[in-house]
């Protein structure tokens, strides 16, 4: 009984923390997907996550799709000579044995044409297509506008 009460207390104490999802197919593991709350649907939403390649061969993230946006795309923020640009990238390479992050200031998914506002605390699915591993579908947590990284309750 005591343990049960303790469990409830712990749950109540961390309402903003999620069990960050992790999905593996072949050697590819996608984890800690997150996005930020949107202001309406006019501005593009964002998608960040981590990809780990434990397989023996290089792979690459080549496409992203989601019912949350009409035109989800892969972009990279590049600052060259002090000028920030955000070129569209055809693929994000995920070399064998490496971990690649889509994170603020680097690679990111850009969710153009949101089909509805992204609300804090909600989740939406994204399907990532890898050149070798194929498709991985994973739920994405929508965090606050002030989130700067994934918020997981497992301390990751």
């Amino acid at each position: 009984m005591k343990t049960l009460i303790l469990a409830f207390v712990l749950l109540g104490a961390a309402p903003a923390a999620f069990a960050c999802e992790s999905v593996s197919v072949g050697g590819i593991t996608v984890q800690q997907p997150w996005s930020r709350v949107s202001i309406g649907t006019q501005r593009p939403g964002v998608l960040y996550l981590t990809i780990r390649n434990d397989g023996p061969a290089d792979d690459a993230l080549t496409a992203v799709s989601t019912p949350a946006a009409e035109t989800p795309m892969l972009h990279e923020t590049v600052v060259s000579d002090g000028i920030a640009s955000m070129p569209h990238v055809m693929q994000v390479p995920v070399p064998a044995g490496e971990t690649v992050e889509l994170r603020p200031g680097g690679y990111h998914g850009m969710l153009m044409g949101l089909t509805g506002p992204l609300e804090e605390g909600a989740t939406f699915p994204v399907t990532l297509t890898f050149a070798t591993a194929g498709e991985i579908t994973i739920p994405v947590q929508v965090l606050s506008m002030r989130a700067e990284g994934p918020e997981c309750d497992d301390g990751q």
């Binding site: 930020r36 006019q42 501005r43 920030a84 955000m86 506008m145 002030r146």
Partner: peptide, 17 residues
Amino acid sequence: FTWCPDVCPTTLLDISD
């Protein structure tokens, strides 16, 4: 500009911090 999903929120969050 506020239509940018990555650089501007990141800069604004840095500044807020």
